[in-house]
Design a protein around this nucleic acid. Structure first.
Lengths: 350, 350
DNA sequence: AGGCTGATTGACAGCGCTGACATTTCGACT
DNA sequence: AGTCGAAATGTCAGCGCTGTCAATCAGCCT
């Protein structure tokens, strides 16, 4: 023996387990990797030995020998409060497949993006990556990963790539439904706060709004549609512009909760009584949605579920292994309306 | 050659680089690892070859041969909006040391906690871990990591372990200062909303409050001190109890912004005019702090800086390498007051 | 019993790198 | 020029596992 194992660290090797079970290391390996072709009695013996020795296979060795890494990367640009929920879901699913999640913030605007990404991906030999928007829409990202041959799941991409699995939610339908709720309560003049240009969510949510308005024979007053960027500060300006229109709208649909919260603030500063004089609805069911008064009616994003789905697709979609390409997997998840106090009947004309 | 390298994936090996530079693989290894004893001319030649071939050393191989992993773990229980900021800071610092961050949610309450942790840590051969509260206070976590010989940085632990590096902020001083601001504006009856029992933050923030009150010769009315749990929902109840006291306090200090936002809601429901009739201050400078009206006066947590510091301590504190133990490293970071609209002079007695 | 097939199991090299140690090189000094 | 020690570089085995392929075994048929 050349180097003594540090005491306490690490654990038994596969050889020790093999000896104890009276089989060869290769057989232990087969058991660990759940390969078929091991008699169940043998498998049991091995499993017992593993348990008794509290054996943990060495990931680095497995990776080196098997040309794998057991690692998948989660790339994001702006962290938001949604990230931690998403990643928790993803990690949970990863555990089921014995994978591990590396998180990597990346600057979408950086000119080094391609190189940074390539370095990371190749150094770690990632088995797949999850791309959060807006990274999921950058051609350079797509190109770099394709060149490296790394499967990538795109979360809520603007346009689906034919060759890339994706996970998204049916924002359009949800907004259509929620807008319909607004109309059903008598609102006719409804303001709309757009999100940041270039996000799929921005486009889809607006389309859902248009769907509902048109379905009810209503026209959209362009003045009442203002562009924000999903952030509170911009949302304030945006809400003020909308509330400055005459006749004043009786409701505002904000493309996310942060902006909806901004609308609440703006209305409050203009001394409007909420929700009697103005209904406000948002999207995301972010923490702030239940922290303003009145609480926001909104659309819940099943963030953990999305995270799980992303990790699941990655673990399934391994084009260079067995019988791929099968159809590129996608998940299209439903959303749930959350009706709260900020939604009220339209005020009576007086 | 036994197995063909998958085309496009991976990159040149150290041997290819060595050949190109006209040196042995070992010398390339020396350059990669920044070891001394390489003539600078040789080093240059190797570096050039590395650049030309766009070589990325294989982490798994480095790990296996060198008994390292280049991985550090970030363990957390409840993800919160603060997590993503923290982790972004940590990842940034990790990159500087060529380390990578694995995030691992863990259930503090689970009876399997010790086993789960041990499995993770040994399978990945983590070089260190960062523990977010409340994990940083669980004896089983501490014991498991100590047994495995893994250095752990504790973030804001209740009590400092003599042998564990830690990062925390001076919550007590910050609350003392902010309370003093309140008193300077004429407030005398000030309510206080405690955080979840067992958190260091809960204790320290309250102590800061007591410090300031006593320093100004004021007693604390026990009725005005209520226990929340850092969450909005509890905060609402808590605020109602405080606002139900007579004479009604003219200000409330909440142990975090979520609860401060709850106080804003509760006050609004009681038709109090903010901030004229009631000043409210919080802690954290969470997103919600600037999303309620009036915006919250609060204390900014330098989350990224804390994350960086944690990663830095881990990369420095490697007791089983070179000359340890040196003094166990700690960081005690200052906080910054953020004065916003929710803080106003006390109403005049009438 | 012998032969044949498919299911199990094992032997062995090698994944790409680094630790220990051997060897060479180089400048300084007799 | 010759000697010596430190600095620079190289040699080689092996980290712990898995892929390949060979060997063995059990079951079944004639």
């Amino acid at each position: 023996m050349r180097r003594a194992a540090a005491p306490g660290r690490g654990s038994a090797t596969i050889e020790v387990v093999a000896d104890r079970a009276g089989v060869s290391p290769k057989t232990v390996s087969r058991v660990i990797n759940n390969e078929r072709g091991v008699r169940s009695e043998t498998r049991e013996r091995v499993l017992t030995a593993i348990r008794q020795l509290d054996y943990q296979p060495n990931l680095a060795a497995r990776g080196l020998a098997g040309d794998r890494s057991f690692l998948i990367g989660l790339f994001y640009d702006h962290p938001g409060d949604y990230l931690s929920e998403f990643q928790t879901g993803a990690v949970q699913r990863c555990r089921e497949s014995n994978l591990h999640l590396m998180v990597e913030p990346l600057e979408a605007a950086s000119p080094e993006l391609g190189r940074d990404l390539s370095t990371l991906v190749r150094q770690l030999r990632l088995e797949g990556v999850i791309l959060l928007p807006p990274l999921s829409d950058l051609p350079v990202v797509h190109a770099t990963l394709a060149a490296a041959g790394i499967p990538a799941v795109h979360i809520a991409p603007m346009r689906q790539q034919d060759d890339a699995p994706s996970v998204d939610t049916d924002d359009r339908a949800a907004v259509r439904q929620l807008t319909t709720e607004l109309l059903r309560r008598g609102h006719r003049r409804v303001g709309f706060m757009l999100g940041r240009a270039g996000h799929r969510a921005t486009e889809q949510r607006y389309l859902g709004f248009v769907d509902a308005m048109h379905a009810n024979g209503l026209d959209i007053d362009p003045q009442l549609v203002q562009t924000g960027n999903f952030e509170f500060a911009e949302g304030l300006e945006c809400a003020r512009r909308i509330l400055g229109c005459r006749p004043r709208p009786t409701a505002i649909f904000a493309s996310n909760d942060d902006m909806a919260a901004a609308a609440v603030s703006a209305a409050r500063q203009m001394s409007l009584v909420l929700p009697r004089q103005l209904s406000i609805v948002g999207f995301d069911d972010a923490p702030v949605a239940s922290m303003v008064w009145p609480q926001l009616t909104t659309v819940r994003q099943p963030l953990r579920v999305i995270g799980r789905a992303a990790a699941e697709l990655i673990s399934e979609y391994q084009p260079h292994r067995q019988g791929w390409p099968r159809p590129v997997p996608r998940r299209h998840l439903p959303l749930e309306l959350v009706l709260r106090g900020s939604l009220a009947p339209a005020p009576q004309d007086s």
